[in-house]
């Protein structure tokens, strides 16, 4: 497969996943803001969302304070923000357009329809009461795209690079969402506010019900951390994502007669760390330190994948 095609497919998937994750982040932040209690707490919720999305610097160059309206605008509409939902969808589509022949019709249609509808939307259509509906729509469009890819692509290298992009982006995103909220998972946290925040966090990775199915227990920060980091059953857990990344890289290598590089070693290392890790050890060493390390590691892995397959 052309290196450029692989690169476009990888990024196409990453951008779509990012758009969905921004929507998830906004959903959980809206909920947390409503239970924050005071204005300072609310501002903190929005600020940490910006940090999780990795676009707080750009935001504070334009705005003094993080409020619902300014953050929503920045993360949904502002084309100056490369992580805004419109920017992600536009970037995904532009990548898709460059490699249209590598996509199936179903993938292209879902993406093209999303882009056409999104660019026809005005701020008034997603403000205030309409925001939850809009965010749900974004999540559904990403689900549709992922479903189209999963159900219609030949299981060849094209599929593997798409899947790799989705999984790497998802791993990064789950780690970031967790990291900005690591304080609410400290062992001594409790109370009604904390409980609502835990719920919101679980929902942001579609794990509200999953927690109950796995643990059948009251929400506990230790178990939430374990679910999101180490449990292989949860599709958005770090373990699940990194295991897919490693598996997919192995499949690509196998398809090419066993050619491997640094990216394969790194992916294996991450997978082993998560596979054999224990939540108590992670928490003892500090959740924040653990997650920061993982985020850096994931970024390095992304760079190694590009160096090996698409920049050679």
């Amino acid at each position: 497969m052309l290196s450029r095609t692989a690169d476009c497919l990888f990024w196409l998937a990453r951008y779509m996943e990012r758009a969905g994750n921004i929507a998830r982040g906004l959903e959980v932040a809206s909920r947390m803001a409503s239970v924050a209690g005071d204005e300072a707490g609310e501002a903190e919720v929005w600020r940490s969302l910006l940090v999780a999305a990795g676009c707080d610097e750009g935001f504070f160059e334009k705005q003094d304070r993080a409020t619902q309206d300014t953050v929503v605008h920045w993360l949904v509409f502002d084309q100056e923000n490369p992580s805004a939902i419109v920017s992600c969808v536009a970037a995904a589509r532009s990548n898709a357009r460059s490699v249209r022949t590598a996509l199936t019709v179903a993938m292209w249609s879902s993406l093209n329809d999303t882009w056409n509808e999104l660019r026809a939307m005005s701020v008034a259509q997603i403000e205030g009461e309409k925001l939850p509906g809009f965010l749900e729509w974004v999540r559904e469009r990403v689900l549709l795209f992922n479903g189209a890819a999963h159900d219609t692509m030949l299981r060849d290298e094209a599929w593997r690079f798409v899947h790799l992009g989705t999984m790497l982006e998802r791993a990064d995103c789950t780690a970031r969402l967790l990291d900005v909220r690591h304080e609410i998972l400290a062992p001594e946290t409790d109370g009604a506010v904390a409980h609502a925040q835990w719920q919101a966090l679980l929902r942001s990775v579609s794990a509200g019900r999953a927690y109950q199915w796995v643990y059948r227990d009251r929400l506990q920060p230790r178990k939430i951390a374990e679910l999101l980091i180490l449990r292989p059953e949860l599709p958005r857990s770090l373990m699940a994502c990194h295991s897919e990344v490693a598996k997919t890289l192995d499949a690509i290598a196998k398809g090419q007669g066993g050619r491997t590089g640094e990216c394969h070693r790194l992916a294996g290392e991450m997978q082993a760390k998560l596979n054999f890790g224990r939540i108590d050890n992670v928490l003892a060493g500090g959740l924040h330190a653990f997650l920061t390390g993982l985020i850096e590691h994931t970024a390095q892995l992304g760079a190694e994948i590009e160096a090996f397959y698409t920049r050679a």
């Binding site: 450029r4 692989a6 490699v99 022949t101 290298e157 690509i252 090419q256």
Partner: peptide, 28 residues
């Protein structure tokens, strides 16, 4: 290209070595 099942390449995807043309792929 899609109908014929062939690659669409841009200039940057091709490289000439010893008067032979190659396309850059993930496998070399």
């Amino acid at each position: 290209a899609d109908e014929m099942g062939i690659e669409v390449v841009e200039g940057g995807d091709l490289v000439v070595q010893d008067k032979r043309v190659f396309m850059r792929t993930t496998a070399g």
